[in-house]
Every structure is written in C-alpha cells, then in structure tokens.
Design a protein around this nucleic acid. Structure first.
Lengths: 210, 210
DNA sequence: GTCTATACGCAGATAGAC
DNA sequence: GTCTATCTGCGTATAGAC
C-alpha cells in the first residue's frame, strides 16, 4: 500500500500533487508486475482512469515516469534504513536486505533492467543511474572506513576502501541477477559468504602503527 | 570484421546461408553500437540493403535475430578460448578476458541488457539466457573442481564449488556493469582482487586426508 | 527459395479544444 | 489540467513477384 507523502490539503497544486502520487503508485505496481518495457502508457492510464496524454503531461516522457517511480521506491526504502548501525554492523545486515528482495521481485527486476539499459550514455536515465551508483558506493565506502577507523579491520588505504566498495556492490548486483534467473539461488547465503570472506581478508591487513 | 563461416560455394542453400551470416554480422555491429531496443528492424534492413520483411523471413522475430547474434558472438569468443589451460590457470586468465571487453563495449552492453530483461520468465530469450548461465556456471565449477582434485586448493565440497562458481560469476557480471556505468573502472584490477582473495581463501580449506 | 510491397495494430509523443 | 485527435515509427503478418 502506497500513500501520498504529506498530501497538501489545500493550495493551488493540491490536485496535481495528489494525482501525481497516485499515478506513481500505480506505475510502481504495474512496472513491478509487467516490467518497464512491458507496460504501455495506455495500460497505465487505463488503470488510473486518465488518458495516456495525462501521464505525459505529468512526467514528460515514459522515462520521466520511470525515474519518478525509482525515486519514490528509494524514498520508501530509505525509511526502513534510517541507519541505526554503522561500520561492520551495517555491512553485516546486507544478507538480510538481499533476502528481503524476494518480496519485491518485480522491482528488483525493474532496477536491474533499467540499470543495464541506462548504462548507455545516451539513455535518458543514464545520469540518474550513475548518480545512484555513486551514492551507493560512497555509502559502502563510508561504513568500511568507519570500520577501519574503529580498528575493526586493518589499515586499508582510501583506494583500497573504494575498490572494496566497488567489489561489494558488484557481488550484490550479480547475486541479485542470478536469483532473478533462478529463484532457487540463496541470496542471503551467497552474500554472507562473500562478506565474511572479505571481512576476514580486511582483518589480515596490518593495523596502523598507532 | 566478421566473415561468413564456411561459406558453401554451391548447393541449394548457398545464397540463404551467406545472406543470413551477413545479416547477423550487420546486426552485431548495429546492436553493439545502438543497443537492442535502439535498433529497429527497418534500420538494420536499410544497412543491409534489404527490406525489413527479409529479416523476419530469416529470423522469425526480432528476438530471433537477437539470439542468432548472441550465438554467433559466443561462437567467435569460444574460438579464442579453446581451453589450453584448466584449473586455477584458467581462472587466472579471467582478468585479461574482462579487460578484453573494453574493445567491445556495445556487445557487453548488449549481453548485460538482454540478461537483465530476459530474467523475466515471460521474456522470449529467457530460456536461452538461463541455459547460458548454467553452462557458464558449470565451466567455472569444472575448473575449480580440477583445482581441488589437483590439490591446488583445499577439499571444497561440491556444494561449496557450486557456490564459488556463482559468486565468481556474480562478481564478474557486477564488475562489467560498473565499467559500463563508469569507464574509469579498472576491470582487470577488480577481477584480480576478487580472484586472488578467493583463491587464498580456498587454500585455507583443509586438504583431504589422503 | 528468396525477397518485396503493403497493411494492421500498438507504441510514445504532440497540438489544440475546453 | 485533462481531454480527443492525430502524427510518426515500431514489430509483425501475409500475398505474391521473380
């Protein structure tokens, strides 16, 4: 169930804001079920009881609607994620987060597909996806750096921290993709195996000579 | 430059076979440049100086053409890959193979995009992609098992070997994706870092009590 | 056997009325 | 703001030319 965020109860844009949120909610549902390419603006519009021109009016293009969907989805995810933990404790929650994707197959499929498509620099969502990856890499790097600073792992250099964030992201993406292709894949197990090996390896790096 | 494989110089299907190979060669080039979704049958046909109906005649559907392209690409890749090495030596060539993708950005993009799209079970190429992954996982597992049998690494169980093949595939896919998003990513370095850590970890597993 | 001409329905996008 | 009407281009199907 998706609710309108902070609905303005009055004011000149009230209708527009509510309508927009409602359209995004429907798009999340339909994209999640039928994918991006498999959903036409006309189908979306029929579900929302508007014309497909209305969707274009609100979001400019179909990709504009897609980006609105991705942003709303991230906003909702971020709420569950209000980082009460950091450092290694944060990273160790990743297996559970990956397992949680099983309840949202369509959306993982959507993210995966769009990321691949938008890797082309001419794709409309390219800038969005690149920025999203940078944010994600920075988050992982920050938590790993926190572990370094706390002495939980050895003295990794900034370049090593950045590379480890990349490798972790790569593993998570690849694991998600394999689960999409074969639902028998145990995402939590694969993630945990990767992570515990990485942590053990980081711990073998020498501590700084304090 | 792509050449017709074993062109029949005579016989009833000569023209058809040559034509088909030529069409696939053009499709590899155009898909590689503009992506699958970005290439229309009419554009492809114009490049080949035939009508778009001819493409349908040869490949049935646009996805049929796609699968022909993927198979031809794999066939060509396999020629460079006629496994003169096995076991750890094979796995250690992966960084170079990944680096080699830099010369074929469009095709890596194509594989990545199609794999993501076709993760949906209703996608026309789903069966092809799933089978391709199974083959790939088996290849990695076979080489790792050879390393186990040779005593180059510890006595991993069959389940562990399978999981390691999955993790390796996941890392390679994720590394490729990140390079597509950011050409500054060093694919060979990332692959080597992953691989050497994995090998070191396998070596810490106890040898069988022979 | 191989290819073209042509048509159908659906897609995303735009223009202008209300 | 939303509608209807319409544009262009897509994948696909078929009939028939050579």
């Amino acid at each position: 169930m998706i609710e309108t965020p902070r609905p303005a109860t009055r004011g000149p844009y009230r209708t527009g804001i509510e309508r927009r949120a409602q359209l995004v909610a429907i798009a999340i549902e339909v994209f999640g079920q039928r994918g991006f390419a498999g959903s036409s603006l006309r189908t979306l519009a029929e579900r929302a009881d508007v014309s497909h021109a209305t969707l274009i009016r609100h979001f400019g293009t179909k990709e504009g609607l897609l980006i609105a969907v991705l942003q709303e989805w991230e906003r909702q995810s971020a709420e569950h994620d209000l980082a009460d933990v950091s450092g290694l404790a944060y990273l160790r929650r990743l297996p559970d987060i990956m397992a949680g994707h099983r309840r949202n197959r369509g959306l993982l499929e959507l993210f995966t597909t769009i990321t691949a498509e938008a890797s082309n620099p001419e794709h409309r969502a390219h800038a969005y996806v690149v920025q999203r990856y940078e944010t994600n890499l920075r988050t992982f790097a920050r938590h790993l750096q926190a572990a370094v600073d706390a002495g939980d792992v050895g003295a990794l250099s900034p370049a090593q921290v950045a590379l480890e964030a990349r490798l972790l992201t790569a593993a998570l993406d690849g694991i998600g993709l394999q689960w999409l292709l074969d639902p028998n894949v145990d995402m939590a197990l694969a993630t945990r195996t990767y992570l515990e090996r990485a942590i053990a390896s980081w711990r073998r790096v020498a501590r700084p000579t304090a």
